[in-house]
Amino acid sequence: NKFNKELQWATWEIFNLPNLNEEQVKAFIDSLRDDPSQSANLLAEAKKLNDAQA
């Protein structure tokens, strides 16, 4: 299933962003679980936040 692979990839990527704190990671993962179809958008937002906090 396409969404499942995207969800797994986005989850792994978010867990490995070095500049997000635990609460931010949890919030993004919760959002992914709530709406897996938004995984690409949520990953992009997480990466933006990660870069901003570098």
Score class of each variant (00 low, 15 high):
Ser37Trp: 06
Phe15Gln: 14
Asp35Arg: 08
Ala27Met: 14
Lys26Gly: 06
Glu45His: 10
Asp34Ala: 14
Ile14Ser: 02
Ala44Glu: 10
Phe15Leu: 14
Trp9Arg: 09
Gln38Leu: 07
Ala40Val: 13
Gln53Phe: 06
Asp34Asn: 09
Glu22Pro: 12
Ala54Gln: 11
Gln24Phe: 02
Asn1Thr: 04
Lys2Pro: 14
Ala54Glu: 10
Ala52Phe: 13
Ala44Pro: 01
Asp34Gln: 13
Ser39Arg: 04
Lys48Phe: 07
Leu49Asn: 02
Lys48Ile: 09
Asn19Asp: 05
Ile14Met: 04
Leu17Ala: 01
Arg33Leu: 15
Lys26Val: 06
Ala52Gly: 08
Ser37Pro: 03
Asn1Val: 04
Phe15Val: 06
Trp12Arg: 07
Ser37Ile: 06
Pro18Asn: 06
Gln8Thr: 06
Leu32Glu: 00
Leu42Pro: 00
Ala40Asn: 09
Ala54Trp: 09
Ile14Ala: 02
Phe15Asn: 10
Ala40Gln: 11
Lys5Met: 04
Lys26Phe: 11
Phe28Ile: 05
Leu7Gly: 03
Asp34Val: 13
Pro36Ile: 12
Leu20Ile: 04
Gln38Glu: 07
Ala46Leu: 03
Lys47Ser: 05
Val25Tyr: 03
Asp35Leu: 05
Ala46Arg: 00
Trp9Gln: 11
Ala27Asn: 11
Glu45Val: 11
Glu23Thr: 12
Trp12Val: 05
Glu13Gly: 03
Ala10Trp: 08
Trp12Phe: 09
Asp30Lys: 09
Pro18Ile: 07
Gln38Trp: 04
Gln38Lys: 11
Lys2His: 15
Ser37Phe: 07
Asn1Asp: 15
Pro36Asn: 02
Asn41Met: 14
Lys2Ile: 15
Asp35Phe: 09
Asn4Phe: 14
Lys48Ser: 11
Asn4Glu: 15
Glu13Gln: 14
Ala27Pro: 01
Asn21Met: 07
Asn1Ser: 04
Trp9Ser: 06
Asp35Met: 09
Trp9Glu: 12
Ala46Ile: 02
Ile14Pro: 01
Ala10Pro: 01
Thr11Trp: 06
Ala10Gly: 03
Lys5Trp: 08
Ser39Val: 15
Gln38Val: 06
Pro18Arg: 08
Asp51Lys: 12
Gln8Val: 09
Asn50Gln: 02
Leu32Pro: 00
Val25Gln: 08
Gln8Trp: 14
Glu23Asp: 12
Leu7Trp: 08
Asn21Glu: 06
Trp9Thr: 06
Leu17Gln: 03
Leu42Tyr: 09
Lys47His: 08
Gln53Tyr: 06
Asp51Ser: 11
Gln24Ala: 02
Arg33Val: 14
Asn19His: 10
Lys26Ala: 10
Leu17Asn: 01
Asn16Phe: 04
Phe28Glu: 00
Ser31Leu: 09
Phe28Thr: 01
Gln24His: 02
Gln38Tyr: 05
Glu22Phe: 13
Leu20Asp: 00
Ser31Tyr: 12
Ala40Asp: 07
Leu43Gln: 03
Asp34Met: 14
Leu17Asp: 00
Lys47Gly: 03
Asp35Lys: 12
Leu32Lys: 00
Glu13Arg: 06
Ile29Ser: 03
Leu32Ala: 04
Lys47Glu: 04
Phe3Asn: 12
Asn4Ile: 10
Ile29Thr: 04
Ser37Met: 07
Lys26Asn: 11
Leu17Thr: 00
Lys5Leu: 04
Leu7Ser: 04
Gln38Ala: 15
Asn19Thr: 03
Glu45Leu: 11
Ala46Asp: 00
Leu49Pro: 00
Asp34Ile: 11
Ser31Gly: 08
Gln24Thr: 03
Ala27Val: 11
Leu20Arg: 00
Leu20Phe: 01
Glu13Phe: 15
Trp12Met: 08
Ala10Lys: 03
Asn50Ile: 01
